[in-house]
Structure formats: structure tokens, C-alpha cells
């Protein structure tokens, strides 16, 4: 019994310590004299890897989710004769919830896991250690550009997701099911508020971008430098960041829309 309590205590302590460590790592990586000449090329390369290469999965998912929303919305609303409101429903659910959340989940699987595996492998092959010995801080050289890239890319990807989703639903609702396009778009335009919907969605995406890339770079940097350790860290990145995103989404939604 005592043993179990001890283990629980130990586990809690090590979790708290890990959380503290991840904060320190992030701080060391980000709080530094800016060196734009060195950092910019590294950042651009990472934006390519993290953002541009995620475009395909984001666009395709956005398209399909928009089309499904359009179809479902139509079949439900047509019973009440309010199928013109499909555009409004699709736009609101995408902008407020689906675009940031689904983008963050896909991003965790596509880019977050890749970041963790890459950093972990650099650690296992002593590349991080040899950077240190050359006198370059791996936190600034390796971690910082990857973190910023994720942080910048996720909101952009989320916006692209929303735009493609809305277009996909219009394909289904207007072009296929024959809703009058003027009604579809004008309903949407009236319902969507810039601060309440668009901006709040972007804020969510920014927060999620922070969470996902933070988890990803920390798991990679702190992993046990073996193939098994890297695979565990990669799994943890996807699990932890997905759960954290969903949890944070609830909190943010409660803060933004709770007092309607």
C-alpha cells in the first residue's frame, strides 16, 4: 500500500518535473538575442517542412469535411425548409471549431510526430551533443526554428482548412443539391461576425499551434536516445498534443462563447 502511494508520488513528481523542464527548454530556446541572418534561412526551411508539406493533407481533409457538412446540413435542414441556412451552419462550425481543432489534430499526426522523431534521432546519433561541443546551442539552432515554424504554420493551415471547407460545402449544397447560391452566400455573410467567429477561430489555432509544437519539440529533445525511446516519444507527441488540444478547445470555447 505504502509502496503504491510512493510510486504514485514518484510518478506525479516526475510528471511535474518534466513539465517544468519542458518550460525551461522552451524558454532557453526562445529567449535569446535575435540573430535574423542565421535564423531566417533555418526558419524558412522548417516552414517548408512543417507547413508546406502539410498542405496536401489539410486541403484534402478540409474539402471532404466541408462536403460532408454541406450534405449532412442539407438533409437535416431540408425537413424544416431552411436549407438556405446551410452556408451559415457550415461556416460557423468550421470557423469556430472544426478548422482549428481538426487542423491541429492532423498537424500533430503529420508534422508533430515528424518533429519529435527528427529531434530524437539527432539526439540518439549525438548530433545535438556535437552541436553543443562546437559551441552552438541546439536549443536555439534546432528547437527554436522548429517551434516557430509550427507556431506560424498552424494558424495559416487552419485558415486554409476553413476556406477550402466552405468551398467544398458550396460544391455539394449549391452545385449539386441546388440551393440558390445567393441565399447560401448571403446567409453566411450575415451570420458570420469577424471578431466573434473568424478571430476567435484564429486565436484557437494560435493556441493549438503553441501546444502541439511545444509538446513535439519537448518530446523529441527529452526522449530516451534509442529507437524504442524515439518511437515512444513519437506516440506520446500525438497522444498528448491531441488530448491537450481537445481540452484547451473546451476551455477556450467556454471563455469565448460561454456567456452568450
Amino acid at each position: 500500500m505504502i509502496d503504491r502511494i510512493q510510486r504514485l508520488g514518484h510518478k506525479t513528481l516526475s510528471k511535474v518535473a518534466a513539465f517544468g523542464r519542458s518550460g525551461l527548454i522552451l524558454m532557453h530556446a526562445l529567449v535569446a538575442r535575435p540573430q535574423p541572418l542565421v535564423m531566417l534561412p533555418l526558419l524558412i526551411k522548417q516552414i517548408y517542412f512543417v507547413g508546406v508539406l502539410s498542405l496536401v493533407i489539410i486541403v484534402v481533409s478540409g474539402l471532404f469535411i466541408g462536403m460532408v457538412l454541406g450534405l449532412q446540413g442539407y438533409t437535416i435542414m431540408v425537413d424544416y425548409g431552411s436549407e438556405q441556412a446551410v452556408g451559415q451552419m457550415v461556416a460557423l462550425s468550421l470557423l469556430r471549431e472544426l478548422a482549428p481543432v481538426v487542423t491541429a489534430l492532423l498537424f500533430a499526426g503529420r508534422a508533430g510526430s515528424a518533429l519529435t522523431a527528427e529531434i530524437g534521432l539527432m539526439k540518439a546519433t549525438e548530433q545535438l551533443a556535437s552541436l553543443e561541443m562546437i559551441g552552438v546551442d541546439p536549443l536555439r539552432r534546432i528547437i527554436a526554428p522548429r517551434f516557430w515554424a509550427g507556431f506560424i504554420c498552424l494558424p495559416l493551415l487552419s485558415m486554409i482548412f476553413a476556406v477550402v471547407g466552405i468551398w467544398g460545402s458550396s460544391l455539394v449544397a449549391v452545385d449539386w443539391l441546388g440551393i440558390y447560391s445567393g441565399a447560401y452566400w448571403s446567409n453566411m455573410q450575415q451570420a458570420v461576425d469577424f471578431t466573434d467567429d473568424v478571430l476567435n477561430g484564429v486565436v484557437k489555432a494560435v493556441v493549438f499551434g503553441f501546444i502541439v509544437t511545444w509538446v513535439a519539440v519537448y518530446q523529441g529533445y527529452d526522449c530516451i536516445p534509442t529507437s524504442e525511446g524515439i518511437s515512444q516519444a513519437t506516440t506520446r507527441t500525438v497522444v498528448y498534443s491531441s488530448l491537450a488540444v481537445l481540452g484547451a478547445d473546451f476551455i477556450l470555447t467556454a471563455l469565448m462563447f460561454g456567456d452568450l
Binding site: 546519433t125 549525438e126 548530433q127 551533443a129 556535437s130 552541436l131 561541443m133
Partner: peptide, 10 residues
Amino acid sequence: MLFQSGALFT
């Protein structure tokens, strides 16, 4: 420092 594994940047 020459690392045991070489540790070249891949």
C-alpha cells in the same frame, strides 16, 4: 571533439 559515433549532421 570527435564523437565515438562520428555524429555528422545528416
